[in-house]
Design a protein around this nucleic acid. Structure first.
Length: 408
DNA sequence: TCTGGGGTCCTAGGACCC
DNA sequence: TCTGGGGTCCTAGGACCC
């Protein structure tokens, strides 16, 4: 079988530097424009953690996911602000729209990062080196969205993303074709995408603590440890090999809402009240995206940080607070019965098995059973959504939700 | 230091069907 | 009567990422 040579791919990974911090400044420039020490995250009194820290704070050792209280001990002069959700979503959309003008093949990978496949656009951009095109894109993003980004580039997504960390902040780092293997060889094992604490510990137990030690192993050894799939994934990964396409923006697979209590809760009543707030929040998000869900999952995290969940898949897809809460309440009861602990730190609900519309099929048994959601249920939910959109989220069945109360 | 909230993907076992 | 293998869906849990 003869293979036609595939063109060398030109992939960019665009990553907004401290996106949440930049957006906080854009949301409140008067107060924050000249402030070098900004922490975005939960309140230090509660159990909040740092979502994003300005580079000024990072110089003090502050990192994201660190408890806010700890971060303030390291950097006491920092200003703590909540995530500016609306600005983040708007700038993220603007970034995505701008990038789509540079290439038809691109995808947002999260609110603050995107991939762009420029393969085939060489003539369009005057056969300029990838580095030159990247800097042009970077400049245009700055001018049109006011966002500072770093850009990594290479022949595949993995290498492009790894390259970005060498570009931060505000830089561009391109790995030339043919240099992928050497480039990845010089990277710390813990920075390899997909290698987290658990895999690192597993490797450590087997005496593998460095990238060079991992790369020295043959595929057969890795297969004997983990089986074919995982072994070949890691074998390719530590050599910078990745043929995955850039693709399109991903479709939503689940919608969830969860909350950590300021203090552990134990009474069923308190848990149900908190659960209702999460259901109202998740269902509103579901409807905003025009979706229905068939699977409902309730999650509890106990004082020892152990998670337990119960889920149920319904015969038809639903979207109203009433039905989702009724099912969630039963799942919670089941969880409380089975789990010996009586103190919980977190409760959440997740909606999965999503569908674009939920028209009942004709001529099936569903004609015989009454639907879970009557049209009037859905109309009521839609009406509440409209009122909430006008007045800022104060209506819910049974009262004010947790997140609404926080907004005050 | 004591651990958020939004997600995606994977695995493994069991049920059920062909 | 006994046995098998593949496919799909569901559930629970866990790893990982931003």
């Amino acid at each position: 079988m003869s293979e036609t040579p595939r063109p060398v791919r030109r992939i960019l990974h665009i990553d907004v530097d401290a996106m949440f911090v930049q957006c906080a400044v854009l949301a409140d420039p008067e107060r924050l424009r000249d402030e070098p020490l900004i922490l975005v995250g939960g309140s230090p009194e509660g159990r909040g953690v740092v979502t994003s820290a300005s580079y000024g704070c990072r110089a003090f050792g502050v990192r994201s996911a660190m408890p806010t209280a700890t971060a303030l001990r390291l950097c006491s002069r920092a200003v703590v602000v909540p995530p500016p959700g609306a600005v983040i979503r708007a700038r993220s959309r603007a970034l995505g729209a701008l990038l789509s003008e540079w290439s038809p093949v691109g995808a947002m990978a999260s609110v603050d990062e995107a991939y762009l496949d420029l393969t085939g656009t060489e003539a369009l951009y005057h056969h300029d080196p990838l580095d030159t095109v990247a800097r042009r894109i970077q400049r245009e993003i700055r001018e049109r969205t006011e966002l500072q980004v770093s850009i990594g580039g290479g022949t595949n997504r993995l290498v492009a993303k790894l390259a970005t960390s060498f570009a931060k902040p505000a830089g561009v780092h391109i790995v030339d074709p043919g240099n992928e293997d050497r480039f990845v060889a010089g990277i710390e094992l813990s920075r390899l995408i997909g290698v987290g604490p658990a895999l690192l510990a597993d490797l450590g137990r087997r005496g593998v603590t460095t990238m060079s030690a991992l790369r020295a192993l043959d595929l057969a050894t890795l297969v004997s440890w983990w089986g074919e799939d995982r072994a070949s994934w890691l074998w390719r990964r530590c050599r910078g090999i990745d043929s995955s396409p850039v693709g399109a923006d991903p479709v939503t697979k689940s919608v969830s809402s969860e909350t950590t209590f300021a203090h552990d809760r134990s009474s069923r009543q308190e848990l149900e009240r908190a659960l209702l707030g999460r259901v109202v929040d998740a269902c509103a998000s579901l409807r905003r995206q025009g979706l229905f869900a068939r699977t409902i999952t309730v999650k509890l995290r106990d004082a020892e940080f152990a998670d337990r969940s119960r889920s149920r898949t319904l015969a038809e897809a639903v979207r109203t607070d009433r039905v989702v809460y009724a099912v969630s309440r039963e799942l919670l009861a089941d969880l409380c019965q089975q789990v010996p602990t009586r103190r919980y730190r977190l409760i959440g609900v997740s909606l999965g098995n999503l569908e674009q519309d939920a028209e009942p099929e004709q001529g099936t048994l569903s004609d015989l059973a009454p639907p879970l959601e009557a049209p009037r249920d859905r109309n009521l939910a839609a009406a509440v959504d409209r009122i909430r959109a006008r007045h800022g989220g104060i209506i819910g069945p049974g009262g004010v939700s947790d997140s609404d109360r926080r907004r005050g």
